[in-house]
Amino acid sequence: MVQAEKQRDRIGAKYGMWLFLFTEILFFGGMFLLYSVYRSKYPVEFHASAAEENLLLGSINTAVLLTSSLFIAVAISAVKKGNYRLSVILQGATILMGIVFLGIKAVEWFEKIARGIYPNSPVLDKMSMGEILFFGLYYVMTGIHGLHVLIGVCVIAFMVYFTLTGNITRENFSKIENTGLYWHFVDIVWIYLFPLFYLIT
């Protein structure tokens, strides 16, 4: 009976996380809505602006995030198999990948800011309306996505601590499983952001 209750709790926790991810889909959905409307209004400007994005850095970042997803997925399987050492190493690798992602993102941002392209800047305000909107959306969408990555990094850091202290075990892995779901979701958002901002040239 006690066992059954525990099982129920775990599935409940997973449901809760999925429900949260559904809300995230609609949260980002609002941004994709804006993007699609403005892109349909200013297709030429959007194409021209996307050409200014650094495709190489964007592609590397995609690879980094996809790889981090592999790491956290294996880390969770490792916990379920009782291989905590491997799990901790891979969680650490995921954190590292997250930080690399944010670092590259920061380089891209600063490179643009150095050229005077940022919301409300004199340079940007002189550009065409389509370009103002494109770069506005770029900063907002990658910024909010980056914030999600940052939160994910912090949460995984806690998971490392929990795994080390025996709070996460092969019988009790809801926390890290839900963290994994969140991290994969953030990955999926980037999978869509990448073509929308870097590949529509």
């Binding site: 994994g180 990955d187 999978i191 990448f194 073509p195 590949l199």
Partner: peptide, 21 residues
Amino acid sequence: SVLLNLFIATVKAGLVLFFFM
């Protein structure tokens, strides 16, 4: 090609959803 790229993105998202998640 834009549509094709969004299709590829959806396949990628599907792989992450169905296997990683």
